[in-house]
Design a protein around this nucleic acid. Structure first.
Lengths: 195, 195
DNA sequence: TGTACATCAGTGAACGCGCGTTCACTGATGTAC
DNA sequence: TGTACATCAGTGAACGCGCGTTCACTGATGTAC
């Protein structure tokens, strides 16, 4: 093969990123191999390095891309609903999100793993997390912008932590309780600045 | 070698568990190999399977053991301080904890990974998490026991999530802000039932 | 219009390596006689 | 007290396998003449 239409290589790259992003979130970046990934994109493993310098670069870009999607989705959800904040909280701590990690928040799937990668990868992650925090902060009331940001940080930590716990326990009843408790607490934190 | 003193095998087993528990929390269970683990305990890899049926059994027991320690430590910290709840929150979201995962909370290091293991492993994790939640709930006020438990669940999720985020970002200033925001929010949630 | 050549996305064999797991074996000690 | 044997925690070679990465190659198309 050769000399494809303009934009063909970019399209292939996007396809690899899309497959990677989903598999990383589902199985963890560690567990996913390059060969299987490329096969999932309809290619052979050898071509990988003409698209990415290394597996870690792929992880960096796949995580960044999926967090961009998360940000866009949360923004959309917030705009659609009358109470944007509550809509964000309920959609994040929803059973659907718990059961479909491959379509969900990369931070919830990969945060501890990312903490073990290079500074560059952590910086890329950080950059996107700042964006998510911004989206949440924009839904909070209160005159002090810094205080809103700090509350948004804690709320995001709570959402992420609760989703992880709901996935890690064996008992479905406890898992449901975790989601419910997370929603209640997040709404409490969201209302603290309102009066 | 052979015919060691009574309790020798148990002591070796404990040593393997101790090394495993620390390495799993530091590097992730996935990244840690049996051979290196056994070498760290002063042994060769072949003997591993006379102590554990499989790597996953080791993960299960190492995580359970370290969560037992976490529970004991949090209980002690709560008893030492005048405000037991605040002491728990501040010690969990302390820079020392962020920088020493190998000595810290296994849930914060491994939650997404545990979510991908077998039901048996998730059940073992769940059992210990229930214990941690109990310790937190015991520090909360409010007459409704169920409500205290639910708040404790959310608080633990918040603590775990905030610690993970503080480890995963590159910028130290943001990392510090995450810890601080987590403390503030956890204290807010802890006080909600008090009036 | 026809021929020779350059391009380059993708192929697939090969690299060294570490993984989890199995198993025949070692050898110092305790026990039986 | 001395000898033969059983025990069994730990050893280390070997198993098949998949990993991330490299690289010489393919072959369909676009371009130059």
């Amino acid at each position: 093969m050769a000399r494809y239409a303009k934009g063909h290589k970019t399209a292939t790259r996007e396809r690899i990123l899309d497959v990677a992003s989903k598999r990383f979130r589902k199985d963890g970046a560690e567990r996913v191999g390059i060969a299987g990934l490329m096969a999932g994109a309809g290619l052979t493993h050898g071509g990988f390095y003409s698209h990415f310098r290394s597996k870690e670069e792929l992880i960096r870009e796949a995580v960044a891309g999926s967090l961009d999607h998360s940000r866009a989705r949360l923004t959309r959800i917030a705009q659609t609903d009358a109470d944007g904040f509550e809509a964000i909280v309920r959609s994040y701590l929803h059973a659907w999100h718990r059961e479909n990690p491959e379509r969900g928040c990369a931070a919830a799937s990969l945060a501890p793993e990312i903490a073990r990668y290079s500074r560059q990868t952590r910086a890329a992650f950080e950059n996107k997390i700042r964006g998510l925090i911004e989206v949440i902060a924009a839904q909070l009331s209160g005159s002090d912008e810094d205080a809103r940001r700090q509350r948004a940080i804690a709320i995001f930590a709570l959402l992420m932590g609760a989703l992880q716990l709901s996935r890690a326990v064996a008992d479905q009843k406890l898992s449901d309780t975790i989601l419910k408790s997370g929603v209640d607490a997040a709404l409490t934190l969201g209302r603290c600045g309102r009066q």
